[in-house]
Design a protein around this nucleic acid. Structure first.
Lengths: 188, 188
DNA sequence: CGGAATATTCGGTTGATGCCGAATATACCG
DNA sequence: CGGTATATTCGGCATCAACCGAATATTCCG
């Protein structure tokens, strides 16, 4: 209970400003930690992404160590992982030797597209192959259970065909095209 | 190395048929285990889902225990979890007392829609709130860093607005409408 | 082609998760 | 309103994943 509280006065800007900025960042970064969790990633990834998100220039590993408190090895692994997911990009700065710098990918559409291309597409392929093999095996069998299974397998294969088409549309279209599409659909 | 191998002859149907059906099922169920993994679920969930997928009628906990070998408690938890994700439905059969039966949801569009409604929507809300708060806090600060952060926060908020619109479209449309939409887009 | 700066890999440790079986709670039936 | 059949919860063990720091590998520069 000191004399100064409730920093509504812009005259306090010099003192309250920087720490207000820090608090605002922290607030957003914590939300990013939660988001990471929701999408099956580590909380630490959310924090590291957030640090990169607010940086004006690419950030080195050592700076990330200083900022986050994680071990360098942890961050190295995290960066490799997030690069794979297209959440961060590696940049090298001329004159800085081997030093690696990272920046956040801010366009989530791209991130989603890459995920579809990499993971979902592969899942669809694997499942489709399994379904085709099962279908071939079941077609030869004259059995009530086989007929019942066959029908289910064929239904699922149709679902997966549809999904593949959708993934094709989503990964084949540019971000701009998709954005326009969403706008159009929203008005319909 | 017995006399009968290579079951290409339909006359062997009686002997080779049932085990061929079993193999076909197992093949698909294994693919489902992998898929579960890809989408951040437990492998066991893939197997349990697969068992339900091939069943013609709702399946009881005890039957799932017999089929899968997992402990009843494990399956009970798994079912609760998959119900939350709308991957399985609980059915009660009149005259069967308290006994619970489960069946697989085969329409993945529904599953995806429910995920968007439940998890993604909540993520968007949380993040949006954090961004709005940060925005409000930063607007009052006269500082270069604050201005830079503010711009980034606003950009991200716009992205999230777009995402929310898209989620709205996807969760608001019926499965049929979406299917038709995909068809139309594919032809464009 | 060394050597300095940096990144990556790897074994070990600690905390989280999956699964089990016993204990408990719940729903239905007579 | 018991009693029985069933589901759920909970504590404990085993396995797995995150993280660390030391050891190794890589890159770049002189």
């Amino acid at each position: 209970m000191t004399t100064d509280d409730s920093s509504e006065d812009p005259a306090d800007g010099d003192a309250a400003g920087p720490e207000a900025v820090e608090r605002a960042r922290e607030r957003v970064i914590e939300a990013m930690e939660r988001s990471a969790e929701i999408y099956g990633l580590n909380r630490s990834y959310g924090r590291l992404y957030g640090t990169l998100f607010f940086a004006d220039d690419p950030v080195s590993l050592d700076e990330l160590v200083a900022e986050s408190g994680y071990a360098k090895s942890t961050i190295s692994t995290a960066m490799k992982d997030m690069e794979r997911l297209h959440l961060v990009h590696r940049r090298s700065v001329p004159g800085e030797g081997k030093k690696a710098f990272f920046e956040a990918e801010r366009d989530f559409w791209t991130v989603l597209q890459e995920f579809l291309r990499r993971e979902v597409r592969r899942e669809i392929d694997t499942m489709t192959r399994a379904l085709e093999e099962a279908e071939a095996a079941l077609e030869g069998v004259d059995d009530e259970r086989a007929r019942s299974d066959l029908e289910k397998v064929r239904d699922l294969r149709r679902t997966y065909e549809r999904s593949e088409q959708l993934v094709g549309i989503l990964t084949g279209s540019s971000v701009d095209r998709l954005t326009g599409l969403v706008d159009r659909l929203r008005r319909e």
